[in-house]
Simulated assay, not measured.
Amino acid sequence: MTELQDLRIFLEGHIDVPPERLEQVRAALPEHIRLTLAEPGCLSFQVSESGDVAGRFMVSEAFVDRAAFDAHQQRAKASAWFDVTVGIPRDYAVRVGSRR
């Protein structure tokens, strides 16, 4: 049986940005990506605009464990990214997986 601390955390989904906030979100995104990739325990972090749905940004994240993921969530909530995206609808699914 795999212990909880041995499980990676994966987040997949999207954020739907209204047209009037697109430029603000686009401007804030590079710094949010840079800060997230620099976090201890971040394995990958990708955000890209959908080619199919206007204003939709596809999000994919992976962290070494729950503690790293939780630390990311806390950092993000105290960041400029949070201020820029507050109230924007998100549709994310979080899954737990083994290191193997």
Rank of each mutant, 00 (worst) to 15 (best):
Y92V: 01
Q5F: 10
C42G: 07
L37Y: 02
E12N: 13
T85L: 09
D70V: 05
G41C: 07
R99V: 10
K77C: 08
A28D: 06
F57I: 01
P19V: 00
Q73E: 08
A67P: 03
V96M: 15
G97I: 03
V17I: 15
F82N: 09
F63G: 00
G87A: 05
G51M: 12
A67I: 11
E61K: 11
A67M: 08
F63W: 12
K77S: 14
R95Y: 06
R21L: 15
Q73L: 14
A76W: 02
L11M: 13
I33G: 03
E12T: 14
I88S: 03
M1L: 13
E39D: 12
R75G: 12
V47W: 02
H32V: 02
D70W: 04
R75T: 00
G55T: 09
Q73D: 04
I15W: 10
R56G: 08
P30F: 07
V17K: 05
A78R: 14
M1F: 09
V94R: 14
R100I: 04
T2F: 11
L11D: 00
A78P: 01
G55A: 09
A28N: 07
R21V: 10
E31C: 04
Q74Y: 01
P40D: 03
G13I: 07
L22N: 04
R99L: 12
P40Q: 03
V64F: 05
L29H: 08
E20P: 07
V47D: 01
S98E: 13
E31S: 12
H32P: 01
G97N: 04
I33L: 13
T2L: 14
L7H: 08
H72P: 02
R66E: 14
L37G: 00
A38N: 12
P89I: 07
H14E: 13
V59H: 03
F45Y: 15
H72W: 09
P40T: 06
V84P: 08
H14A: 15
D91V: 02
A80W: 05
R34P: 00
A54H: 10
R95C: 07
R34A: 15
T2E: 11
Y92M: 13
E3F: 14
H72Q: 10
E39T: 06
L37N: 06
V84C: 12
H32N: 09
H72T: 06
V47S: 03
V17D: 01
R66T: 05
E3I: 09
G41L: 01
E3C: 05
R90H: 08
A68E: 01
F82Q: 10
G41F: 03
A80D: 12
E31N: 11
H72M: 08
R100H: 10
Q73W: 07
G87L: 05
F10N: 06
D16P: 00
S98R: 15
R99Y: 02
Q5P: 10
L29N: 04
R21A: 15
H32D: 05
S79H: 10
G41Q: 02
L7C: 15
L22Y: 04
A27T: 11
L37S: 00
F45H: 13
D65C: 07
E20W: 06
I9G: 01
A38F: 01
A27I: 04
F63Q: 00
V84E: 09
A62E: 15
H14N: 12
V59I: 15
L37W: 02
P18W: 11
Q74F: 05
P19A: 10
R66S: 08
A76I: 00
S60H: 11
S79M: 12
S48V: 15
R34Y: 05
G13H: 07
D83K: 14
Y92T: 02
M58T: 02
